[in-house]
C-alpha cells in the first residue's frame, strides 16, 4: 500500500542547481501593444545573477523594473504585453519555452516574488495560514493539514506567532502583512527571490526590520535575490551588485563598489546627486531635470540625452552600446571615456 508508506516530504532543502548563474537573461524586450500606442517598457536587457548574490535593480518609476522581473516569471499579461528575448534562463530552464504547467511548477518553487504593496497583495478572504499553505499544497503536494502546519512554522520564521495563522489579512498591520508575503514567497525555499520594492509602502522603522529579515532568510536558505528599489540606501545595505535602469535599458551595472565609488553614467550620477544632503539641511535638493521619457517613443540616440548635462550632438543621433570597464563594471554611454568627461559626485 503505497499511500500508507508515503514519507512525509521535507521542505527544508533549497532546490538543487549547480550552474554558475541561477538567472541568465539575454536581450529581453517587453512592449505593451494597445489600440492607441505601443509602449516600449523594456528595450534589450541582459541580466545575470550568481548564486547567493543580491542584485539591486534601481531606477525611477516607469523605468521598466517591474516589467523586467514579471517577465522572469512569465507573468506579463499577454495581450497587451509582448515579451521577446534571446533567452530567459531560470535555474537553467528557458522560461520562454516552458508550458503553462511547467511554469506553474517553477513559480513559487524556484523563483518567487514579494510585491510592492503588502496592503493589496494578500487575498482578503483567506487566512494568512491558508495563503502560505497554498504554496506547500501546490509544490510539495502536502495535504491541507500538513501544509497548514508548515505554514505555521514559516510564520514563526518570519517573526509572527504561529497562533495568528488563523487570522485574516485585515487583522495585520502593513509590516506584518509584508512578513506574510515574504513567508509566502520563501515557503518553498526558492533559489531566486524577487523583491519588488518590498519596503516602499512601509514605515521607515518597519522597513529596516523587513530588510533585516529578508537578509537573514536569504543567508539561511542561500537564496539569490533581485531587489527592486529606488532607494540607494537600501541598495548599499543589501546588494552585492547594482543595475541602474533607465527607459527600459540598463545604463550602468557593476558591483556595489563599481557603481557607488566609481560611477560612470551621468544618470547614476544624477541619482546620487538628487539624494538630500543629510549634513547640510539648508542645501538645495538637486533633482535630475526633466521627466522620464515617453515610453511610446523609439529613440534614435541615447534615451537619457535630453536630461543629460554632458550630452553632445552625437548622443542624440547614435545609440550607445554596452562598454565594459572591467569584468564586473559596464556602462551604456557614448562619452564616458572621453577626456573632458568627468562625473561629479557630491560627497555625502
Amino acid at each position: 500500500m503505497e499511500i500508507f508508506k508515503r514519507k512525509k516530504k521535507t521542505v527544508q532543502q533549497p532546490k538543487a542547481f549547480e550552474g554558475e548563474y541561477v538567472l541568465d537573461v539575454e536581450d529581453l524586450k517587453i512592449r505593451y501593444e494597445t489600440d492607441d500606442a505601443v509602449v516600449y517598457a523594456v528595450n534589450g536587457i541582459d541580466l545575470k545573477l550568481k548564486r547567493k548574490q543580491t542584485l539591486g535593480l534601481v531606477g525611477e518609476t516607469g523605468a521598466g523594473k517591474t516589467s523586467t522581473v514579471l517577465a522572469l516569471l512569465k507573468l506579463i499579461p499577454t495581450p497587451p504585453g509582448v515579451v521577446e528575448a534571446k533567452k530567459i534562463l531560470v535555474n537553467g530552464k528557458d522560461v520562454m519555452a516552458l508550458s503553462d504547467k511547467q511554469l506553474q511548477q517553477i513559480r513559487g518553487n524556484e523563483i518567487a516574488m514579494v510585491f510592492q504593496d503588502p496592503m493589496t497583495s494578500l487575498d482578503p478572504v483567506y487566512t494568512v495560514g491558508e495563503q502560505i499553505a497554498e504554496s506547500y499544497m501546490i509544490h510539495d503536494k502536502l495535504s491541507k493539514k500538513e501544509a497548514l502546519e508548515e505554514a505555521k512554522k514559516m510564520l514563526e520564521i518570519v517573526g509572527i506567532p504561529a497562533e495568528r495563522s488563523g487570522e485574516f489579512p485585515y487583522q495585520f498591520s502593513g509590516g506584518m502583512k509584508q512578513r506574510v508575503v515574504i513567508a509566502i514567497a520563501l515557503a518553498c525555499r526558492p533559489n531566486i527571490l524577487i523583491a519588488d520594492e518590498p519596503t516602499t509602502a512601509l514605515d521607515v522603522t518597519i522597513q529596516l526590520q523587513v530588510l533585516e529579515l529578508m537578509k537573514q532568510l536569504n543567508e539561511k536558505y542561500q537564496t539569490s535575490t533581485i531587489m527592486i528599489t529606488h532607494d540607494l540606501g537600501i541598495v548599499a545595505e543589501t546588494c552585492d551588485e547594482v543595475a541602474v535602469m533607465y527607459a527600459g535599458q540598463i545604463v550602468e551595472k557593476g558591483t556595489l563598489e563599481d557603481v557607488f565609488e566609481n560611477t560612470k553614467h551621468p544618470y547614476t550620477e544624477g541619482l546620487f546627486n538628487s539624494l538630500p544632503n543629510m549634513n547640510d539641511r539648508n542645501s538645495k535638493l538637486n533633482p535630475i531635470k526633466g521627466l522620464i521619457p515617453d515610453p511610446t517613443i523609439v529613440f534614435t540616440g541615447c534615451p537619457f540625452a535630453e536630461r543629460c548635462r554632458y550630452a553632445k550632438e552625437k548622443c542624440f543621433k547614435q545609440k550607445p552600446t554596452v562598454k565594459h570597464l572591467s569584468e564586473s563594471h559596464q556602462v551604456k554611454c557614448l562619452r564616458y571615456d572621453e577626456a573632458d568627461f568627468k562625473i561629479e559626485r557630491s560627497l555625502k
Binding site: L73, L75, L103, Q104, Q105, I106, R107, G108, N109, A112, M113, F115, D117, T120, S121, L122, D123, P124, Q131, E134, S135, I138, H139, V181, I184, A185
Partner: peptide, 10 residues
C-alpha cells in the same frame, strides 16, 4: 494585486 501573488505562487 493579490491575484499576482497567487499566480506567482504557481
Amino acid at each position: 494585486d493579490y491575484l499576482k501573488t497567487v499566480r506567482a505562487k504557481g
